[in-house]
Design a protein around this nucleic acid. Structure first.
Lengths: 216, 216
DNA sequence: GTAGGATTCAAACTAGCGTTTCAGAGCGCC
DNA sequence: GGCGCTCTGAAACGCTAGTTTGAATCCTAC
């Protein structure tokens, strides 16, 4: 048997973490909602940090494996749109009404980019290292005319837009008088993000800055 | 006398909040670093929440007044770049080596977009309402061909990129093998952000989505 | 059927948090 | 000088957090 208690704790924790944040979610809230004993967390995961790491690892490993697969499948002359798709789509497509768990996890992932404790950050970084390495190469190949420094910053901006979208933090609700925010699902979001980001990545170089030439 | 204790608490709190987040910063850490008594916070600000609100209000009021000023000064046919400049520059330009306080505040501001407790969120929203109202109008005027729904999402993406940049969360440090991240100052950041975001906002419409026509 | 490891349980422990209390120090003013 | 007010100080309160404990229970293997 696959230890129902473990799974129930992970599911509930994922949801509460996504909704209230990591530090604002107590083990007592998790265990009482999961209808398990308080001590079960420390028994199965060692500590709260252990639980958090497991919540991330459980989904992130398969998610990033899929990203690497799609990045590796790209043609040598793939346009930026395709590189963006390989990087973004696997994450956002978890956000479907069908998969409530995946939906919550995406929110959690977006939030954690920012909330992040120093050591948890390191753990997640480890899970991301391979994906980023491949993505960096793919973007550089798709944007050969862009100086390295400029590429660095533009990928930075891209990550911001993606993370923010995943976090679902609707600061925008003030802006939108109407109720436009019908929480579009992941594939719609991807279809909107890619043209926006591709255009940004391909934008003309900023005029004012002295461009350091790419390493000879 | 301008109450040195109050100011010292605000300065130290701003720095610690920016570095460790709101919930992970205790009043004891603040007061001991500021070399004031623990009770001083509750005396001067009523509560920790009161302190947090004051930390934000102190800088945000003047910052957003400046944004409104610049937005109002725009010509009717101002290009997106200028609208972006009016919205982004006042914030990022606080991030100069000269003003350490402003620099920390910008990081704090970026983080808080995400960390945000429900009620604090409301307070900050209140401080932002006017700026967003003006910005929304200005962007709509600069991008007349964009459907309302599409504009909504693109402004959402824009906010993500800006917030992430302000937060200084360098998930990217994995990507950049070299030490490119020489923490460019605010004006450089603005010069890089504007071409990227302007191109994104002006991007062709996503093909797959059935565009809801703008309200007749 | 029973021994023994794996799991659950209620309860307590320690630590840190925000907050409160109340005594007293500093100081201007009639 | 003494009243009144603002502010500071040390200590404690109540609460919640993560963690630990040791007995009770379940379940499998012989």
């Amino acid at each position: 048997m696959t230890d129902a208690t473990r799974e129930r704790i992970l599911d509930v924790a994922e949801g509460l973490f996504a909704e209230h944040g990591l530090v604002n979610t107590s083990l007592r809230a998790i265990t009482s909602l999961a209808a398990v004993n308080l001590a079960a967390v420390n028994y199965h995961f060692g500590s709260k940090d252990g639980l958090i790491r497991e919540v991330f690892a459980r989904r992130l490993v398969t998610l990033n494996r899929e990203r690497v697969r799609r990045l590796d499948a790209l043609a040598d002359d793939a346009p930026v749109e395709d590189v963006l798709g390989a990087f973004i789509a696997p994450a956002l497509e978890l956000n479907t009404p069908a998969d409530l768990g995946g939906q919550r996890f995406i929110r959690l992932l977006g939030r954690t980019y920012f909330e992040a404790a120093p050591e948890l950050r390191a753990h997640i970084h480890g899970l991301y290292a391979e994906v980023f390495e491949r993505a960096k190469v793919a973007f550089a190949r798709a944007l050969p005319e862009l100086p390295a420094l400029e590429l660095y910053w533009r990928l930075h901006f891209m990550l911001g837009a993606v993370s923010y979208t995943m976090a679902g933090t609707d600061l925008m609700q003030i802006v939108a008088a109407c109720e436009l925010a019908t929480q579009a699902d992941g594939t719609q979001m991807t279809q909107r993000l890619i043209p926006f980001l591709a255009a940004g990545l391909r934008a003309p170089l900023p005029p004012g800055l002295a461009q350091r030439p790419a390493a000879a």
